[in-house]
Design a protein around this nucleic acid. Structure first.
Lengths: 346, 346
DNA sequence: CTGAAAGCGCTAACAA
DNA sequence: TTGTTAGCGCTTTCAG
């Protein structure tokens, strides 16, 4: 079924066969022939010929000549994560819509790997670069500037460049309010009260979420104690063990409410909870800052907050289109899923 | 903090500053200077100079010259899917380990988009191309051959090219055996018996899984009836509705066992199941051909089968390394998660 | 041990 | 209306 592979047909080959010059063929194939006032007849003849000869441009050569490649980069920590893969999806769709080719590179939260990748993508002359969840944003931004590379940060903001991130503060505040509603007031505060669980307090996202939690609690007259904020990282096993420890400290019960900060933390917690009697579980209100479709289908209600990946990406692209280059931080309100209000209605 | 952007330093600039020629600099920077018998001193001087001048190669120019780009392509249906994002992760890791830059493009299960993408990636002179979950493999393989592009298929095999896919038959057989064990023999066969649910019987993966199901049932003396194989696609809503319909047909009960063919089908089913009384749910044995970490943490046991993405990718790469180019189909046994045996032990 | 020269395949001035 | 020319920045013979 396959045509003989004719050893890489070039523009000149096509030109020869068409009895035209390379530049004419180039113009015809790129649709710029109108501007070059090449006769429609010639153009069409060339286009037809090129197609049937199976010609296709060498994009490296074009890129070299035009000093831009038609590639757009996205750097992110990992693929195997719902948020980042949603981001990839949205990014890809937008890139292809513009006829660009998405290059998505996972850097495993390794700052040196991130820097290498920026250099590499600059080497390929990507037209612009999106950087999500960077571990060292400022250093990357500097690198991009050295390479005169348009760039924008997502999720983890950069102090020196356009950034668009979720409104972590309000997302956490919303979940906190739901927990406050679900738990009787006398059990709001104090050890064993509503507890923020998981995440890394030194990172932007978690610190904003913790602020949202703390201030919403305070506004409800339930200023959280130190023991009500347990930022024990994002590791699932770690979360499991920390929750077990908390359960022990509380004399064999769960806190009145748990705001689980990320899906991995939720998984760890769920693994612990799975071993508890139903009554005990029903006595604790849950909420999760992250989304998984199965989350809404458990034996207890679980409001979840989901980052609006589409909106984040679209907004980032708009910033670049607008030629934004200076520092600027735009927030996108995340989406509340499985809210009890909606669940009650259904 | 940022260095002045010195308007794209080229190899010739470095050569000039070093008082050497372009070819010498090139050799020094590429580590080929030994072979060219350039003095270590010169080489080191040049390397130091280049680094401090902030030089970095133009990979498009290099690629043009060498007729290979250092890019490797992966085409897949979508990012927002656990299996494919796991695949991306494994692919990326392997690519970067080899100093190559992964280019992952999602084509939305659109055959024309797939073809376009192959052409585009060929235009960028990717060193090789991995194609996962293709909707029209043979046509893509032909395209690749036209472009003399080394390629390999994953997950969805191609009749004319090296392919590596999960052993769907045995994966399904294993799940079926677990269901047979969990359900009393008199309820194995007949309508309301163990039922294969979801997927598309015309597609490779599902058809192999159905075969595995059917033959394992038969071997257990429980040849499934037509009503016990409901290949209603992969859509979650559709699965929900079909399961509701089945429940109605069975006079308001679930079948004795359900082999849910994909996580989306499972989601739809779970949404329906969530509304049923506990006793009814406990009366049905479940299994799922796909993996999600939350699956193991539900109120009923759920054995799941997970494709070994790492092994798939590694094997595919080995085939390319070995220069495989003809048709060939290699199977990778998937992994059984949440098996009752293991659960019982813990 | 090192430099000069010849392109890789394409596009965009500039001529004709 | 079209062809000629001059590179984009790099690697790689081939001569020194």
């Amino acid at each position: 079924v396959s045509t003989r592979a004719p050893q890489k047909l070039t523009l000149h080959d096509v030109a020869a066969r068409a009895g035209a010059s390379a530049s004419t063929v180039s113009a015809a194939l790129n649709g710029t022939w109108r501007a070059r006032r090449i006769s429609a007849e010639t153009a069409e003849r060339i286009i037809a010929l090129a197609r049937e000869a199976g010609y296709s441009v060498n994009l490296q050569a074009r890129g070299l000549r035009k000093a831009r490649s038609g590639l757009v980069g996205l750097i992110l920590p990992e693929h195997a994560n719902r948020f980042f893969s949603d981001l990839s999806q949205a990014f890809s769709a937008e890139a292809r819509k513009r006829g660009l080719c998405p290059v998505i590179v996972a850097t495993e939260r390794n700052p040196e790997e991130e820097r290498q990748t920026v250099r590499q993508l600059a080497g390929y002359a990507v037209d612009s670069l999106f950087i999500a969840g960077a571990s060292a944003p400022e250093s990357l931004s500097a690198l991009c500037r050295e390479h005169a590379l348009a760039h924008v940060f997502l999720d983890q903001p950069c102090a020196d460049a356009p950034s668009v991130v979720s409104d972590n503060y309000h997302g956490a505040a919303e979940l906190t309010r739901l927990l406050l509603d679900a738990v009787p007031p006398e059990r709001h505060a104090g050890d064993g009260g509503i507890t923020f669980f998981g995440g890394n307090a030194t990172m932007h996202a978690s610190s904003r979420r913790i602020a949202g939690f703390r201030e919403t609690m305070r506004a409800a007259g339930a200023e959280p104690s130190g023991g009500q904020i347990i930022a024990c990282g994002y590791d699932s096993d770690r979360a499991h063990d920390e929750l077990a420890a908390l359960h022990r400290r509380l004399g064999g019960r769960l806190p009145s409410g748990l705001l689980l900060n990320s899906i991995t933390v939720f998984e760890g917690a769920l693994r612990f909870i799975a071993g508890l009697p139903d009554a005990e579980v029903r006595d604790c209100a849950f909420a999760c800052y992250d989304y998984d479709p199965l989350g809404g289908l458990l034996r207890f209600p679980l409001p979840m907050v989901r980052q609006r990946h589409r909106a984040l990406v679209r907004h980032a692209w708009e910033m670049l289109d607008a030629g934004a280059t200076g520092p600027r931080l735009d927030l996108v309100r995340p989406e509340l899923c499985n809210s009890p209000a909606v669940a009650a209605a259904s």
